[in-house]
Design a protein around this nucleic acid. Structure first.
Lengths: 377, 377
DNA sequence: ATGAAAGCGCTAACAG
DNA sequence: CTGTTAGCGCTTTCAT
């Protein structure tokens, strides 16, 4: 049951049926009604495929995302999907976990006209891939990856690492650890590395030397981060604060602190990066970057391109904002003792638990629930 | 630059080019090489669209998911995407947040041949929608929604609620609260409600009456759950344990406990549902259901249908498993005093923080990190 | 092994 | 306003 059958049954030409389908105003009302009736009666369903073929456009965009299960990625994706949906585009999403998948899907997208455009989240591309997209005449916008030559939305991760570190320095910390991603995924994410660079820069500017023994890089995952943090905190000269390359990893650090019996922020300050939803819940200090909104912007930009609307600059830097919550505090002025893993006596259990930290406001180092941005630099 | 141009340039017929494209063995090697060379030289890209039209199949499947940002949903989606990818299908994902979106996308999917099949995650459908899919000849499999007449993968949520509650009862709790979803989303999710039913059944079986004042239903979200939990715990006769309809909500309960200065599990036991990744991190006891795996199964089932392979039963019930971690413990035998919101004195800050709870193992109620299933019934 | 030709279902330009 | 027709780019018999 195709358009021809409908036309025949209604005693009109296919053109007219097509016009009805596409809401053209140039159809007499009586004719339209008759056609609609036939469509219903026959249970006719137009083929999006055939229409696309004829139109030369798919009304679909491909979305490449790495590690779909990471909260920050999902937030971005949600932003992207929401505007694509609004704009009437289908979203074909590819979850990328390995370089092979990246290459395969990128190739298939640019090679077999499946989509009118593509948005790439957090995955750096190489020149050849950009060229392939270009050659395929596929508009592309990148998000959270700074590949030159591409339209992209990024944050200044070096600055972000510096902001986090300077926040800790301002609180009096001098021995600050760092936990970030290694290069294990093979997708060459750069965020963690650049944040580390910012961390180093901030320390250097404060006249503090580089201590590799309190820097740990490993797989991106809370449990991995917890393991690494436990390592850092078990050295002879443990840090009084840890800067994590993501909130997920910062949560791991919090867990490690808890397991070691370290109070946060009294024994250890922890700062993350991203400001994912759960960060506010655990009152984690962090450097916020737009997640969902970055997706919205990127998708809008793509839609503009797809519709031939004017193009703004190719590289957009989104703002970062320090959010100080309860996981960072002034370093103990009395010169804190090395955190011997205190095995707390079994009495007075009540007071040892995840308890009133959130209610006390020591040293004015942090305030109530969502204090908003502080420490402008 | 289409297949005809390639054929012309190579001095062959389009049929032969097509054969090369599809790896047909019936092409002389010399011819094949010549064609491949031309394809490269011309930068020819076959049109998936045209192929689909010709073949009558899109090699794409539509995936409808509600509230993409929920971890349990993402886990399921990841499972679905992984097998669709393996099987060579594109995944067109629709994020559904309102009944209108559900209806619109469902209609568009079943109406405009965009996909060869559809998987629906957690969204109950009505008979008409099933019929529409049927009429469109679109195989569909549902995941985490028990709409009769559909191929579906579900868990027994009533039983799950009972398992959670019985675990708490076995630990000696008699006053057990419940926190779950209200019907606010309009998508009529049923999980929370059925878990509540299981909770009631378990209590009834233990001869414990129904106390509406320690049951709270509200929006699905950790902060909302925290608010509700605070309410429950502030009544004259607060519960000694709370059963949450999801891990996300259970996390909210943990936060509430922390804010109120209640020790977990000494003052309050908390159990969640799902076993999302972060549950293990915070040592949350929970009822585990297969998330990623359920997605894998559902997608495989759909692929089977798409490829006309044999069909197994229409309704598959996946297993549930109680995972006892550190957030549930035996009720205090000394008969615990009402949890007056203790405002802890400002001395001895160190001991008050998120601390050694994880290291102590009171009353043998829980053991080390991943104890696996316990409390079979 | 390969060329020719008939669709797949729709849109849009053109002619009335 | 509406019918006719020429593609859109590919796959697939059917001959050869």
């Amino acid at each position: 049951v195709n358009i021809a059958k409908v036309a025949a049954e209604a005693g009109v030409g296919v053109g007219t049926v097509s016009r009805v389908l596409n809401g053209s105003p140039q159809v007499r009302d009586a004719t339209r009604r008759r056609i609609v009736e036939v469509i219903d009666r026959l249970g006719y369903r137009p083929s999006h495929l055939a229409a696309s073929l004829s139109l030369g456009a798919t009304r679909a965009v491909a979305v490449l995302v790495p590690f779909l299960t990471r909260p920050s990625v999902v937030a971005r994706l949600a932003g992207v999907l929401s505007v694509l949906d609004e704009e009437g585009y289908d979203s074909v999403v590819f979850n990328i976990e390995t370089p092979e998948q990246r290459d395969r899907h990128l190739a298939s997208v640019s090679t077999k006209h499946r989509a009118d455009g593509v948005v790439v989240i957090s995955i750096p591309l190489v020149r050849d891939q950009l060229a392939a997209l270009e050659a395929a005449n596929l508009p592309m916008v990148m998000l959270d990856a700074d590949t030159s030559g591409a339209v992209r939305f990024v944050v200044d991760n070096v600055k972000g690492g510096r902001m986090a570190t300077e926040h800790l320095l301002a609180l009096g910390h001098r021995r600050i650890g760092f936990i970030g991603d290694d290069t294990g995924s093979g997708l060459s994410f750069t965020s963690s590395g650049r944040r580390l660079a910012g961390y180093r820069a901030a320390l250097a500017a404060a006249g503090i030397g580089w201590c590799p023994e309190i820097v740990a890089l490993g797989p991106h995952g809370a449990e991995d981060a917890a393991r690494m943090a436990t390592g850092l905190l078990s050295t002879g000269a443990p840090p009084t604060a840890i800067c994590a390359a993501s909130d997920t990893q910062a949560m791991g650090v919090l867990t490690a602190a808890e397991r070691l019996g370290l109070a946060v922020p009294d024994d250890l300050s922890v700062i993350g990066f991203d400001d994912i939803d759960s960060a506010a819940m655990v009152r984690l200090s962090t450097v916020r970057q737009p997640l969902q909104d970055s997706g919205v912007l990127a998708a809008r930009r793509l839609c503009d391109q797809l519709q031939g609307r004017p193009r703004r600059p190719a590289r957009t830097v989104l703002p970062l904002e320090l959010v100080a919550r309860a996981s960072t505090g002034a370093v103990d002025c009395r010169g804190r003792p090395p955190p011997t893993r205190r095995t707390v006596a079994r009495t007075d259990r009540r007071r040892r638990s995840r308890s009133t930290r959130s209610n006390s406001t020591p040293a004015g180092a942090y305030s109530n629930n969502h204090p908003g941005p502080v420490q402008p630099a």
